[in-house]
Amino acid sequence: MRNDLHRRRARRVLPTMLLLAVTAGALAACGDASTPASSTSSSSPTPPAPAADAPASDSPADAATHMVDAGAGRSLAFHVTPGGPPAIVLDSGGGMDSSYWDDLVPQLAAATGSTIITYDRAGLGDSDEVPGAWDPQSAADDLETGLRALDVTQDVVLVAHSQAGEVATYFTRANPQLVSGAVLVDANLPQLYTDETIARLIALGTPQVEAAKADPSTKQNRQLIATAENYAPMHQAYHQVTWPDDVPVTVIVAEKTPFDGLPKDAQRWRDAAAAFVAAGPDRTLVTAEGSSHDVPIDRPDIVLAEIETMVAARD
């Protein structure tokens, strides 16, 4: 029952977050996309004090919840399913907390024997909120703080959906020795954020942002407001960021993309992903056939398979 309710909640939240938090939308040309190096299609800071354990209210049954001191009087919730290396870290998209991965965690643990870590970014789930604009670099710092508190200092396979692609990019650039590989699931990629795209997204997202400001009672609405607050300069900077060449990465693109029903924009989204893959070595492009932007729910088999492949490749 809980998972069914979660799926309905995800379907409701994602459209609201679409224009700003969930996607960078390919509404403007992102440049010519070269043929990716490898392409397949699938059908089927200073370390804080030690983390304190807390009851795992929303995490999978075998997971332990650790409340990590992130400084400035705030805590972050990390949920750990014990196992061996590598540590597989799952980061959810805009407006979604760690429960987004509840169905996949036990499957991953059984298939890989790995430690599985999910967490709530600041302001979501059981993690404390941070006032002001959302900043993916600060979010990446939070992730580093949490992993170091858990004594995870090497051999991480990072899995990021949607908005979390921004966090993953900054985290991996700052910690290339820590990340053994990454799987980016229909993720926000730097190639998408041209000045024209940013301006269009701000204009298109204004009604949703204004509606959120009129009702800031929910965490999702507050996160949307925070994402919009510094949107243009934040994404102008992100547009210049590159993925480290020495960290292998698989990019999963949803067949329907976040722009189902808008063929031109959907193609630009796919082209941007292809351009990202073509821009460096050890990058693979996979299409999640039949899936919406919500790939982990629509096609968990593909996400699971690509994580398993990345784990095996890193071995």
Rank of each mutant, 00 (worst) to 15 (best):
Y193E: 04
S180Q: 11
A164S: 15
E144Q: 13
T172Y: 01
Q191P: 11
Y170G: 07
A164H: 08
G165C: 03
L189K: 01
E196K: 14
A182E: 03
A160G: 10
T172G: 00
L150I: 11
V159S: 12
F171N: 05
T153E: 11
E166Q: 15
G146S: 01
V157N: 02
Y193V: 03
V159Q: 12
V183W: 12
Q154W: 05
E196S: 11
A187Y: 00
V152T: 07
G181Y: 03
Q177T: 13
D155L: 02
V157L: 09
V152N: 01
L143Y: 09
V152E: 08
T194W: 02
V183G: 08
G181L: 05
L189R: 09
D186Y: 09
G165K: 07
A149I: 04
S162C: 10
V185K: 10
H161G: 00
V159R: 11
T197P: 07
V157S: 06
Q191A: 14
V183Q: 07
A160N: 07
L178V: 05
L189M: 13
A168R: 06
T145S: 03
V159W: 12
V167Y: 09
A168K: 06
Q154D: 15
A168V: 01
L147V: 09
F171H: 13
P190R: 06
G181V: 02
A168T: 04
V183K: 11
T169E: 08
Y170Q: 10
E166W: 06
L158P: 07
V159I: 03
D186K: 12
A160P: 10
Q154H: 14
T153Y: 06
R173I: 06
T197Y: 08
L150G: 05
Q191E: 13
A164F: 05
Q163C: 09
L158T: 08
L192C: 10
A182I: 00
A160C: 13
E196Y: 08
L189F: 02
T169M: 13
A160Y: 02
L147A: 06
A182L: 05
N188D: 09
L143G: 09
V183A: 11
A149C: 11
L178C: 08
G165T: 03
T169L: 12
V167E: 09
V152M: 01
E166K: 14
L178P: 03
V183L: 10
